[in-house]
């Protein structure tokens, strides 16, 4: 049995030809764009908007962060890492966001897979309830955490009844963690459920036919197939947690997360330089996470081509 039959060789060169025609099409498309001023004219509103509301303020923000901080006299960007209060704020925010993202992906990933694979009475209702937090602003999420773990919360009342003391977690780091987890879970569930729809069931059947049990199938087939979705949804949870303001503000956590630090530098101390430096730092970290997510999602789409 010789391998590369004529035929297969031909289909391979066919694929190469296909790639070149695609490139040619793209070139001619750009050509059309250049030749038609009307197209450029249509872009003017978007460009204006981009310049006025993004490019100009952001350039100012970046430049402002270069100036010395009025308390320490350091360049503000340097102060972010050199001044403990800012560094701790940054590190804690990172830590909470990473922790929340990992836990959300692990728990909601399993739940999303279960929901995608099983049919039962009331499933639509359950999915609707689980994804409901997406509709809440951060303030409401914070409020819900207080209802659960605050001074008058359910847990406090329960422990008062049993042990005569109030247990609370709402105003600590744990409260923040729970709140962030609460709005991260629906994102993971919806993404994972959508990704499960696209799983190739015959891959699992092939693995099973070769003797793989549930655990091996999960490890060797399902998790690898879902990993782009898991990583990208995790990155989005991370970005959302990094920038979450309402929840932290409502909870009034003793630990000041980065968005709260920015807010207080800005409003309480009128320290615009520091606020700008912290904002740019937050923006860059979040942007890296999001572009990472986008590239993975795009990569998984490209793989099938």
């Amino acid at each position: 049995m010789s391998l590369t039959s004529h035929h297969e060789a031909r289909s391979l060169s066919g694929a190469a030809a296909d790639v070149t025609t695609k490139a040619a099409r793209r070139r001619s498309y750009l050509g059309t764009l250049r030749r038609q001023p009307a197209v450029l004219l249509a872009l003017v509103p978007a460009l204006t908007f981009f310049c006025a509301f993004w490019l100009l303020p952001f350039t100012r923000l970046v430049a402002m962060g270069m100036q010395p901080d009025k308390n320490s006299g350091m360049i503000a960007y340097w102060a972010v890492v050199a001044q403990p209060q800012y560094l701790y704020s940054l590190l804690w925010t990172l830590l909470v966001s990473i922790g929340v993202s990992l836990l959300a992906v692990a728990t909601a990933g399993v739940a999303g897979f279960f929901l995608a694979r099983n049919r039962f009475r009331g499933k639509a209702m359950l999915v609707a309830m689980l994804t409901f937090p997406l509709a809440f602003p951060g303030v409401v999420v914070g409020f819900l955490v207080i209802m659960l773990g605050g001074r008058q919360g359910a847990l406090a009342q329960f422990s008062m009844l049993l042990f005569g003391e109030r247990w609370m977690f709402a105003y600590s780091l744990a409260g923040l963690f729970v709140g962030y987890l609460y709005f991260s879970i629906p994102r993971v569930i919806t993404t994972v459920m959508a990704a499960c729809e696209k799983l190739d069931v015959s891959l699992e059947e092939a693995a099973r036919s070769l003797g793989a049990g549930t655990w091996r199938v999960t490890r060797d087939v399902i998790v690898p197939a879902l990993s782009p979705a898991l990583i990208s949804t995790g990155a989005i949870c991370f970005a959302t947690s990094m920038g979450a303001f309402g929840t932290a503000f409502t909870l009034g956590t003793r630990m000041s997360v980065l968005p709260l630090s920015i807010y207080s530098e800005f409003t309480n101390y009128a320290n615009f330089t520091m606020a700008a430096a912290l904002s740019v730092t937050l923006g860059v970290i979040t942007w890296i996470a999001l572009s990472f997510a986008r590239r993975l999602a795009g990569g998984s789409l490209g793989a099938s081509a």
Binding site: D200, S202, L203, E205, A206, A207, R208, S209, L210, G211, A212, G213, D220, V221, P224
Partner: peptide, 15 residues
């Protein structure tokens, strides 16, 4: 997985 069969699918189902 306990039947000791080999299966070949239409869409290849390669990992």
């Amino acid at each position: 997985e306990k039947r000791d069969v080999g299966m070949v699918f239409q869409n290849y189902a390669l990992f």
